[in-house]
């Protein structure tokens, strides 16, 4: 991003000074990302919109006291997560805690592996189909990205939050664990669960459907 506002050291003082162009750049750059993150916490599109709105109002109220100990983006996401969690706790009140984390679906179906009693029990019975036979343009196509997006949206809340932050938005493991208030180990378990489901969805898409 080549905007002069891409640098926190330029953007933060501009926001504090009431620079409206800076604020417009901020909300126009981040609102769709914030909406996607909010949507992993709350049950509806409308609730996510409200969370994003509340987040921006929180930013306006808090920017004067923002000490830049973290990046502006991290600080904004922290405000969003706090708003979204309050809201999500209401939305998901009826769900047992286990439903928030979901169950682990094995990376590959158990019948892909040699059974107990075999000298090589637990090793591949037949190797999984490779994706590098798939033409590059199909692997990288919008259609495949759509499969990834839908697989992520179908995840239970916690694995969804973790994969959105880690793999979609590119946050570090430590930042995600801190932001969500979970241990590093739990962060990895949830991330693994999420990636396993997304891999299976992509695999089903690439290895069972005819290319268009």
């Amino acid at each position: 991003m080549s905007s002069p506002y891409a640098d926190d050291d330029a953007l933060v003082p501009a926001l504090r000074a009431g620079d409206e162009a800076a604020f417009c750049w901020l909300i126009d750059t981040y609102s769709a990302h914030l909406h996607r993150l909010a949507r992993s916490f709350v049950a509806s599109h409308a609730a996510a919109e409200e969370v994003v709105q509340e987040t921006w109002l929180g930013v306006i109220r808090g920017i004067g006291g923002f000490g830049q100990r973290s990046s502006l983006r991290t600080w904004i996401c922290r405000i969003l997560v706090n708003q979204a969690r309050r809201r999500g706790a209401r939305d998901h009140r009826a769900l047992p805690a286990s439903a928030l984390a979901g169950e682990h679906e094995p990376v590959a179906p158990l019948e892909s592996f040699l059974p107990e009693g075999h000298a090589w029990a637990g090793h591949w019975a037949s190797t999984p189909p490779r994706w590098d036979d798939v033409p590059g343009e199909r692997l990288e196509s919008e259609e495949t990205l759509d499969v990834v997006r839908r697989a992520i949206e179908a995840l239970p809340p916690l694995p969804r939050q973790v994969i959105v932050l880690r793999d979609v938005e590119g946050w570090s493991a430590a930042d995600v664990a801190e932001l969500l208030g979970i241990s590093d180990g739990n962060q990895r378990v949830l991330l693994h669960r999420a990636r396993a489901r997304v891999r299976r969805a992509v695999d089903a898409h690439l290895t069972t459907t005819e290319p268009r």
Partner: peptide
């Protein structure tokens, strides 16, 4: 087999990073 799945793990991470945010501008 495991090397293939590892490669797919990396591909999933890369593809996830390319999913654009929706049209949920304000």
């Amino acid at each position: 087999g495991c090397a293939t799945v590892l490669e797919q793990w990396r591909t999933v991470i890369r593809l996830a990073g390319r999913v654009p945010p929706g049209d949920d501008a304000l």
